[in-house]
Each structure stands twice: as structure tokens, then as C-alpha cells.
Amino acid sequence: MSGIGSALLNSLDIGLLLFIIAVGLNIVFGVLNIINFAHGALYMLGAYLAFTLINMVGMPFWAALLLAPIGVAILAVIIDRVLLRFIYSRDVADSLLLTFAILLIINESVRMIWGSGIQVVQPPQLLSGSVQLLGSSVATYSLFVIVIGLILLAGLWYLFNRTRVGRIMRAAALDRDMAEALCINTRMVVTGVFAFGAWLAGVGGVMAAPMRALDPGMGDKIIIESFIVVVIGGLGSFPGALLGAMVLGLIHGFGGRYLPEVNLLLPFVGMALVLLFKPHGIMGKGATT
């Protein structure tokens, strides 16, 4: 029993972290029709900025959680204005290729700035250690990740369903020309959405930093995971990202625990199955090809 309990909690904690990251990828795709290959690199940047703020500048974790994602978002605005603006009117393949180039540039810059080795960020005193729950000990920090994940989830739901900005984003996602006709400045929306997606990646990075060692390859690992999440849930779908993240979290939590012989294979099997039977994802919109 305790085994299942801890696997479940582990799944939830991985799943919500993945959700924070993947939902940013998904919003960018939904509104801008861009598959951002550099999303994982932005996540990594969030983690490394947190490392610098906490270990070098000496800020508390909470300040880093606030500031590092903003730093990532500012960089995203620059990327958008300098590079991405050229390819918004082109097909998706070009955005994949250009963001792949951005990924290479960010990865290498991180290596140059912070070195190739691993770096470690300590969780704040309040969140280190473990507590007893469901008959097994659980890292306090995991519970914190779960709580933050749920808060963000609620916040995003509110944003999309109850605010004007959220409705504009959804309108732009449905029909950019129409939004423009309604005198919505789509250029602002485009940059804003891209920066917001990057901000979410940055939050994910800061959240992940105390759980995982930082190295310049960490973004490449997470981007494929994020692809799996958005494909399973449905490209461009907000509830889909949550569902996909939970499914992948469960695959990791239980697969690593009970089927370690095939734990690498399982996520991709899941991804392929969804694409074969519901190409637009479990919660994806409309027609199948």
C-alpha cells in the first residue's frame, strides 16, 4: 500500500511540474502556431538564474522564484522581437527549425556562463526534509511543488475564463485576422503570449532547481517530455496539458517503480498510441486528419 501511495505522490509531483512547463509550450502553440523547441532551454535558464540569484547573490529562494522567471520572460521578448517575428507567417516546420537554433544558442551560452559541470540549489530551510504521509515519508519540497502547481492551475483557469486578457488570447488563438479586425493589437498579444509561455518555463525551472542537479543538458531532457505531454493531451489545449502531464507523471511514477525494464519505452508508446488513434490529442480540438 505504502508503495502505491508514494508512487502516486511521486507521479503527482512530477506531473504538476511537467504541467507548469508544458502548459507554456501549449499556450504558445495554441495562440501563435509555433512549436517552441527552445522551451526546454528557457526552463533551464530559469533554473540557472535561480542558481545565480540564490547561490551567488545570496537571495532567498522566494525572491528567486519571483525574479528568475521574469528574467526569462524578458529574454523571450527579445527573442520574439529579434528572431521570431520573421517566421510568424511561415509554416510550423520553420518555427521548429528556428527555435531549434535558439535552443542551440541558449544551451551553449549557459555552458559558457555557468560551466559544463553540475550545480546544486538548496531548497529553502522551511521546505527541506520530509514529512510522514499515507504511511511513507514524502519530501516536503514535493508537497510544495504540488501546491504551487495547483495554484498556477487555478490561476490559469481564471485567466482564460474570467479575464479580458485571457479571452483575447483565446480569440487570437481561434482566428488572428478576426481579432485584428476587432482592433486588438495582435502584435502585442503575440509578444505577450510568447513571453508568458517563457515565464511559465522559467517558473518550472526555478521549481525544479532544488530537486534536480543543474547541467546544461537539462533543457533537452525536459523538452521531449513536454512534447509528450502536449501531444497526449492535445496540442493547444489547456485542460489537455493538465491531462497529458498527469498521464506522463503516472507513467514515470509507476513505470519506474513497477516496470523498470521498459520505463524508457512507455512514454513514447503512450505518445504514439494517442497520435495514432486521436492525432489531435485526448482533449484536442476537432477534426482528425
Partner: peptide, 20 residues
């Protein structure tokens, strides 16, 4: 036995397996 991938980030499932 437990053989996580070299460079894996999450060892928790393997840790749990051994503890159980």
C-alpha cells in the same frame, strides 16, 4: 535489482523500490 539510466534525473522510484 535497480539500474536507472545514467544521467537520469529522478531516482525516487528506484529508491522506493529498495525501501519497500
Amino acid at each position: 535489482t535497480n539500474f536507472p539510466r545514467f544521467g537520469a534525473e529522478d531516482f525516487t522510484p528506484f529508491i522506493d523500490r529498495v525501501m519497500d
